[in-house]
Simulated assay, not measured.
Amino acid sequence: MLMRWMCALALCLALPAQAAQLKIDLGHGVTILTTDQLLHRADARSVTIPGDVAYQRTMHYRAVPLRALLPGLAPDDHLRFAASDGFSAEIPASAILNRKGSQAWLAVEATTAPWPALPGNTRSAGPFYVVWTHPQAAHIGSEQWPYQLASIRRMNGVDARFPAIVPGASVPKDSPVRRGFAVFKRTCFACHTLNGEGDATLGPDLNLPYNPTEYLRADLLRAFIRNPQSLHRWPGAKMHGFPTQASLSDADLDAVLDYLRYMAKHKAAH
């Protein structure tokens, strides 16, 4: 029995690591792509990413133009990028189809050449990671760099799917609340739900049972969003802050707080 177990173990160790799979659903059936398929595509190339969002330094990847993997995508389409850790990025198709300035790439981690572990993490950003060249040209934020990616799916926009997070019709179009809602969808909603709605499972709900504006002073909440460790020293924390104007301006941060204060008065029934 021992010899049989040792032979089985040796066989397992001799086998190559299993290729990871990415699921893409654009509404006409699910396509499954493996790391090997992607790495052997004719349009795969090496890209250099200065100031990589996940690794916080310059990184080099083998990658495929993301728009090439999404045939039939229209500029007004909306995509959800779901990660294996519960992160859920909402990215408009127009940003991916853009051919001027920034460009989205799907970086692919080879099983024979794994990427390093993420800072403060035991896992890498692989097996799939959306990276951008010249992201500033299209105002691409840090939440639009989903890593540990598992699936891409075309869906209705956030407002249609989750009406309980949308400000009421009486809120003026130029209101700071609506600006804050737009920023919230781009940043906070990738990790959190609100009023029990949303796809992300990484962070807690931001309105039920209590909204953070109800239990944190405004200055502490601003400091927490900029640097979560400023409020709670926790080496294992998963929340990344927005420390710079480039990732979240003071005006956008103030608008998010306006939106959260508004939603604190508009809780969903629970």
Rank of each mutant, 00 (worst) to 15 (best):
C7D: 12
A8C: 15
L9F: 15
L11F: 13
L15W: 14
P16R: 06
L22T: 07
K23D: 15
L26D: 09
H28I: 00
H28T: 12
H28V: 09
V30P: 01
T31V: 11
D36Q: 11
Q37D: 10
H40C: 02
R41V: 01
A44P: 12
P50Y: 06
V53Q: 01
V53P: 00
Q56G: 11
R57N: 12
R57Q: 15
H60K: 15
Y61F: 15
R62I: 14
P65M: 05
P71A: 08
G72N: 05
D77P: 03
D85K: 01
G86V: 06
P92H: 00
S94N: 09
S94Q: 15
R99Y: 10
K100V: 11
W105A: 06
A107N: 01
V108Q: 05
E109R: 01
T112F: 11
A113L: 11
W115D: 00
A125F: 06
V130S: 06
H134G: 08
P135Y: 01
A137V: 08
E143R: 14
A150S: 09
S151P: 07
R154D: 03
G157L: 08
D159W: 07
R161K: 07
F162Q: 03
V171E: 02
P172V: 01
P172C: 00
P176E: 02
G180Y: 04
F181A: 09
V183I: 04
R186E: 08
A190K: 02
N195Y: 08
N195F: 12
G196P: 04
D199N: 11
A200Y: 03
P204V: 06
P204L: 08
L208F: 10
L208N: 12
P209G: 04
P209N: 05
R217M: 12
L220N: 14
F224M: 12
F224G: 11
R226N: 01
N227W: 10
W234E: 14
G236R: 13
G241K: 03
P243K: 04
P243R: 06
Q245A: 14
S249M: 04
A251W: 02
L253W: 04
D254C: 10
D258Q: 15
L260I: 07
R261M: 14
Y262C: 04
Y262M: 09
Y262H: 03
K267Q: 15
